[in-house]
Design a protein around this nucleic acid. Sequence first.
DNA 1: CCATGCGCTTGACATTTTATAGCGGTTTGC
DNA 2: GCAAACCGCTATAAAATGTCAAGCGCATGG
Lengths: 126, 126
Amino acid sequence: MHTVEEPFCAAAAAIEILQQKWVLHIVRILLDGPRGFNELGRLTGGCNPATLAQRLEHLESLGIVRKTVHSYMPPRTTYELTAAGVALQDVVAAIEAWGKRYLRPAGGAGEVVCTQGEAPAPGRTG
Amino acid sequence: MHTVEEPFCAAAAAIEILQQKWVLHIVRILLDGPRGFNELGRLTGGCNPATLAQRLEHLESLGIVRKTVHSYMPPRTTYELTAAGVALQDVVAAIEAWGKRYLRPAGGAGEVVCTQGEAPAPGRTG
DNA sequence: CCATGCGCTTGACATTTTATAGCGGTTTGC
DNA sequence: GCAAACCGCTATAAAATGTCAAGCGCATGG
């Protein structure tokens, strides 16, 4: 679609994959162990089957997720991370660390970053 | 929309913010220094003004980005990261490291993860 | 037996992102 | 001086994407 100026930016390329809706959630859940399709959908926080199937297929084609069919009937499948997928733990860990440090439980109107140590300014919105 | 089972998952909350389209790109660019609106749009790889404005406003309300209007006329505004925003460098760095390690320049049919170095398994990535 | 759950697809719908044009004005080029 | 380009940013419609609800074929639990 674009990306014509830079030869290859690893960060930008990785971001393109990870910023897709639900991807980071999927990885995060899978980091905890193999999961089934519906189980994964629930654990991600409610990813619908259509999107989940597409994300999973994409991640599988990328070699980040591995799909294992244990039996067609009754249907029993598990998704797990490959080595490349497990390596994303560093990313998820960094995100979680950031969240723990700068995000507060959110009262309801969206998350708010706590600018502790920052914002010497008098204004609000911190 | 959801999140009813867990009291507060920092990782999930942070992911909700970061997985929005262009957010990670914006942060990545801003990590390199303050930028103007249109400049930012170009550097992100072509984020359109409508989305960019919305993302910027959201990030600002979150306290991740700080907007500074130097002059209304001629219009001169700069966006830069707050301390919370700069802290995302760890996340971007982790993403970039992962990308460098597991992503290859992509021939054209989408990026492909290279499972080299890892995967002590006998078969191929499957 | 009937309801439920499994993995996953389909189709209609809602939300999000995109492209394009434009505002008011200053700067640049000729 | 005038036309064009650019600044930050908004409006609009169209396209892309994500969501919901239902369901297939079958095994299990009440």
